[in-house]
Structure formats: C-alpha cells, structure tokens
C-alpha cells in the first residue's frame, strides 16, 4: 500500500483493503507478527495458564437500530470474538468516547442495554474509561471500545490446519439481518420499505453466540475444527479467508443457506448480495463430516440458531483455492471477499 495514500472508508469495510492495511501498514509499523497468524483473538500464556484476549471498537450509526444498539453490540461483538476462538468469555473492559452534547438519557439507554447484554451472557464489565471530545471532532454521539478476556474451553482444538477435505461447513441462521437493519435505518428507508410490509420485521441479529460455540465444543470436542462470526464482509469474506488460509476449495449450496425473507427482499431492493452483508449473531463452523448432523441439532436447540444448516463442503487443496456456490438455478459462481463495503445501487 502506497504510503502517500489516504485512508478511505472502504479500508474499514472488512474486505481486501482492510486486510491490506493490516498486513502492509499496521503490522510492519508496530513490529507485530505476520498477518497469517492473526485471529479474532489471541491466546496468551499467563502465569502457567492461558487466557484468550481480544478487542474491538464500535462506531455504528445510528446508535440505536431495530434489534439492538451500540451498547449491546459492543458487548456481544467482543464476546463473539472470544467464543469463536474456543474460549469461555470471562470479563470485559469498556472505554467510552462521548461527543460533547450527547443526551445523557440516550447514554443511559445504551449503557443499560450493554449491561443487560453482559448480564445475559454471564460476563462482567470490570474496568473502563471515559473521554469526552469536542462536538463535531469525533464520531457523532458515542464510540465504544471493549476488550475481553476468556479462558480456553476444555477440548477446544481449532485452527485452519485442522480443516480437511470432506468437512462440513455450517451456518447458524439467515444472513444479512444486522447490516440491512442498520442500513435501512440509516438511509431512512423505513417508509419506502414499510409500504411493502418488509421493514417492520427487519431486525439486527445482534446476539452473543458463546452459548452455541461452547455447546458444540462440549459435545463434539475436536470434531469442531474452525469457527468464525461472519461480521464485516459477511459470509463471503469469512469463507474466502477460510479458503485462502487452508488452500482448499470450498463449495456451498445456495439452496441450503437459511433465508430471512425480509432481509432477502431488502437486499434485492438495494441491489446488495446477502453473502457480503454483515451479521452480528451468526456462527460459521467447520465440522468433521460424521459430526455435522449432530452439530446442527446442537445449534438448533438455541433460540438464535433454530435454522442452522450444513451449507457446504470443504474440497481439495488447490493452487488457486476458490469458494464456489451452486446457485438456486443450478449454475455455478465464485464467492470472494468484497473490495470494501457494498454500496446500494441506483435503480
């Protein structure tokens, strides 16, 4: 990446540009490890034991959206990064950057929501920080950073290197609900879509998924080989990363991907591909094929994962590994990491 260039919004989209920024600017500058070993969370040896450690910042606009708000998101998002790393989340920090002029009542609603999400997840917010920035000089309203620590679950054995040909790819529910709910609210799409009867039920899927991951690891142990939460860049970015890191082709079947008809309708209206839209309460997992059916059963026991399904299969190693989708119509197409963030189309 050319040093004279400036940061574009697309650098934060979770696509190719984000990966490039991390690999070519951030890691070399801080003298960190190589990008291929980076995961959603890091495992650190501490005093003879191990902790799993992660951090994430939240800048979502609007601050409140159907199905959640920035407070709930900041708790669930960090819990989920620990969860997919095979850890039991234990404690969170919460740092707030508030904009001068923010309504205290709004702040209260957001923090109450964050507190409730932490309580529901059995996680404690143990430390934090508060700063206030001049009006108009930062993100409007509020920015939240949370960091989280967890302990590795007994029996967890996850990693790209464990993924083999024939393994099943699981998805815990329909795609796109978070990204579309936020986008619809942000764009004032409510009115237009509500007329068609879609908007009313479009809700973010924002939820903590550690109940799903721990249940699977408890029952299936090392048959669970790899997990991710498909946030920015959506399922497409998650699977493209899996394919690139394992060097294996992956085939998914469009007809097996759980569908939320409302999200589907809104995505069609905006010209967006559901595979590229962000989720905040979904799990993608690679499971040994003989345990796939059981894994779906375990997931579907949870309210947030009722429509879990096996959506694809890990294929052979390949020089140019690809994610391919067998479409509804029976055609084939490639699934790849979006460039930045998909923009709604014109007509």
């Amino acid at each position: 990446m050319n040093q004279s260039k400036k940061i574009l919004l697309a650098h934060g989209g979770g696509g190719q540009l984000t990966a490039e920024l991390i690999a070519e600017v951030i890691l070399p500058a801080i003298g960190g490890q190589d990008a291929s070993s980076l995961n959603d969370a890091a495992t650190v040896a501490v005093g003879g034991g191990q902790v799993v450690f992660t951090t994430d910042s939240y800048v979502v606009q609007p601050l409140e959206f159907p199905g959640g708000d920035i407070g709930k998101l900041s708790v669930c998002g960090t819990i989920n990064d620990l969860a997919v790393s095979g850890a039991k989340p234990v404690a969170l920090s919460m740092a707030l950057i508030l904009e001068e002029g923010l309504e205290v009542s709004l702040l209260c609603r957001i923090l109450t929501s964050a507190g409730q999400a932490a309580k529901d997840a059995g996680v404690t917010i143990v430390t934090g920080d508060t700063k206030v920035v001049e009006r108009g000089k930062g993100q409007p309203g509020i920015t939240i950073n949370t960091a989280g620590v967890g302990v590795p679950l007994a029996g967890a054995n996850l990693g790209f290197e464990r993924v083999e040909e024939g393994d099943a790819v699981l998805l815990s529910g329909p795609l796109g609900q978070h990204g579309l709910a936020v986008m619809a609210r942000r764009g004032g799409l409510g009115v237009a879509a509500a007329r068609k009867g879609h908007y009313v039920s479009l809700q973010s899927d924002c939820a903590a998924i550690h109940g799903l991951t721990s249940a699977m690891i408890e029952t299936l142990g090392s048959k669970v080989k790899w997990m991710r939460d498909p946030t920015r860049g959506g399922l497409a970015a998650t699977l493209a990363e899996l394919s690139a890191a394992t060097g294996r082709n992956i085939e998914i079947r469009e007809t097996d991907i759980p569908l939320d008809p409302t999200a589907h309708a809104v995505a069609e209206m905006l010209g967006l591909d559901l595979l590229n839209v962000a989720n905040e309460g979904k799990l993608v997992a690679v499971i040994a094929s003989d345990a796939a059916e059981k894994a779906v059963e375990i997931l579907a026991d949870h309210e947030i994962a009722r429509s879990s399904a096996v959506i694809g299969t890990v294929g052979q190693s390949d020089d140019v590994p690809l994610v391919e989708m067998l479409t509804h119509a029976g055609g084939r197409r490639i699934v790849q990491t979006p460039y930045g963030q998909d923009l709604p189309r014109i007509c």
């Binding site: 574009l8 697309a10 764009g187 189309r345 014109i346």
Partner: peptide
Amino acid sequence: DMVRVPGSSGSLEQARCDGANVEIVYA
C-alpha cells in the same frame, strides 16, 4: 454507486478524503 467512479481528477471518494462533503442518499 457514484462515489468510486473515477473522474479525470479523481473520484468523489478521494475528494471526501480531502475534505469534501459527500453524502450517500438512498432516494
């Protein structure tokens, strides 16, 4: 759709980086 289209002296996306006010609307 329009923000990334290159003009002869850059796109609106680049102009926004340089301080221009460019807002995306859906309608």
